Simulated scan of single mutants.
Amino acid sequence: MSGSSLDGQVVVVTGAARGVGALLARKLAARGARLALVGLEPDEMKSVAGSLGTEAVTWTADVTDREAMARVAEEVSAHFGRVDTVVANAGVATGGPFLDSDPVAFDRVIQVNLLGSVSTARAFLPALMASRGYLLQIASLAAITPAPLMAAYCASKSGVEAFAHSLRAEVGHKGVRVGVAYLSWTDTDMVRGADEDEALRAMRGRLPWPANRTYPLDPAVERLVSGIVRRSPHVYAQWWLRGMQPIRGYLPSLLGGALARREMRRAEPALARGAGVRRGLVGRGGAADETARASSAHTT
């Protein structure tokens, strides 16, 4: 590919119904890409596909279902004839104290964010090897910086970062490039849902600048698109995230020490007010995941 064009390139985006995935699909289509959209919300994905003005096909699948993802990969390859880029974007989140967390929701974050990314890579890597393509794994500031009240999300995003780095070293000689994308707090349903938790919202607001801001979605996704065009090993959706890399080794001690103890003491009244409240997956995407799982359990 040359310049800023993705003309004719086939790009798979998971978690494509809303937020980062939906806007990413629109921006990729504007660069000439053909899109395969994968997610749990068929109506929302069809709406996204219909708005693209380019060839776009949707597949309804749970990224944690290895067999379903293998079928999707086969069907995408059969339909388009090739796969050039895969963006492993599907993700969910939950927040709050670990011991108060809903174990099912906590485990689901690990399953979708980490094991779902593994299933996505397992399904599509053969096609990417054939095209000498590119896999972009969506990670997070949470992979760089540990944070209280976010144990599941931080663990899952640290996991996908390490998985992508390992995979890059393993498949690079076959012509496949692997990138990791980092996003700070970005204006999505997930972040707005997380902000409904009083303690988490207050603690986030006391983070040092620039980590205490919520950033607009459009410029963040534009940076992702630029990374895809360049097949970059690292993509930073906010400019300052690159500067976190050299100091990340110091962050667990810094944030897990006196600072964390002080902030957790300050959060105790809000945490007490929320005690006993079930903390499920946040945002409309989280609700869609829970609905899809409930429907699947009912039909089986």
Rank of each mutant, 00 (worst) to 15 (best):
residue 198 E to P: 11
residue 22 A to F: 10
residue 232 S to L: 14
residue 237 A to L: 12
residue 293 R to S: 08
residue 61 A to L: 05
residue 42 P to E: 15
residue 106 F to H: 10
residue 173 H to S: 15
residue 31 R to P: 09
residue 51 S to P: 11
residue 105 A to L: 13
residue 40 L to T: 06
residue 298 H to S: 15
residue 214 T to F: 08
residue 62 D to W: 02
residue 220 A to K: 02
residue 15 G to T: 04
residue 265 R to H: 01
residue 154 C to D: 12
residue 91 G to M: 07
residue 245 Q to Y: 09
residue 142 A to D: 02
residue 42 P to A: 11
residue 18 R to T: 13
residue 175 G to E: 09
residue 136 L to R: 00
residue 34 R to E: 14
residue 3 G to S: 13
residue 254 L to W: 00
residue 198 E to Q: 04
residue 109 V to G: 05
residue 122 R to G: 08
residue 202 A to D: 09
residue 89 N to T: 06
residue 70 A to R: 14
residue 106 F to V: 08
residue 12 V to R: 03
residue 130 A to L: 08
residue 83 V to A: 13
residue 57 V to Q: 10
residue 265 R to A: 00
residue 56 A to R: 01
residue 167 L to C: 04
residue 289 D to P: 03
residue 300 T to I: 09
residue 266 R to Y: 00
residue 107 D to E: 14
residue 53 G to C: 12
residue 74 E to C: 03
residue 205 G to N: 05
residue 75 E to H: 03
residue 9 Q to V: 08
residue 279 R to G: 03
residue 245 Q to L: 14
residue 182 Y to L: 03
residue 9 Q to L: 12
residue 255 L to I: 13
residue 218 D to A: 14
residue 188 T to N: 07
residue 205 G to P: 04
residue 153 Y to R: 07
residue 158 S to D: 12
residue 186 T to I: 08
residue 16 A to F: 08
residue 218 D to N: 13
residue 80 F to V: 10
residue 48 V to R: 07
residue 267 A to F: 00
residue 294 A to R: 14
residue 22 A to E: 14
residue 6 L to P: 01
residue 289 D to W: 14
residue 125 L to N: 06
residue 28 L to M: 06
residue 27 K to P: 10
residue 263 E to H: 01
residue 226 S to K: 13
residue 260 A to D: 15
residue 16 A to V: 13
residue 196 E to Y: 06
residue 73 A to M: 09
residue 209 W to M: 10
residue 297 A to Y: 07
residue 282 V to N: 01
residue 165 H to L: 14
residue 199 A to F: 00
residue 139 A to Y: 01
residue 155 A to E: 10
residue 145 T to K: 13
residue 147 A to H: 07
residue 14 T to Y: 03
residue 186 T to V: 08
residue 141 L to E: 15
residue 287 A to W: 05
residue 284 R to W: 10
residue 147 A to G: 15
residue 63 V to Y: 05
residue 10 V to W: 01
residue 1 M to V: 11
residue 127 A to Q: 12
residue 251 L to V: 11
residue 237 A to F: 05
residue 31 R to Q: 12
residue 161 E to S: 05
residue 142 A to W: 01
residue 187 D to I: 05
residue 140 S to K: 03
residue 55 E to V: 10
residue 2 S to N: 13
residue 241 L to W: 11
residue 166 S to M: 02
residue 206 R to W: 02
residue 36 A to L: 05
residue 215 Y to K: 13
residue 132 R to T: 10
residue 247 I to C: 08
residue 233 P to Q: 14
residue 262 R to C: 00
residue 285 G to W: 01
residue 172 G to T: 09
residue 74 E to A: 08
residue 226 S to Q: 13
residue 87 V to A: 09
residue 183 L to F: 09
residue 57 V to S: 11
residue 7 D to A: 15
residue 286 G to E: 09
residue 200 L to K: 02
residue 201 R to E: 09
residue 11 V to Q: 08
residue 268 E to C: 04
residue 27 K to L: 15
residue 300 T to W: 06
residue 265 R to G: 00
residue 120 T to C: 11
residue 75 E to K: 02
residue 250 Y to K: 06
residue 163 F to Q: 10
residue 50 G to I: 08
residue 142 A to R: 01
residue 275 A to M: 09
residue 171 V to S: 05
residue 44 E to T: 11
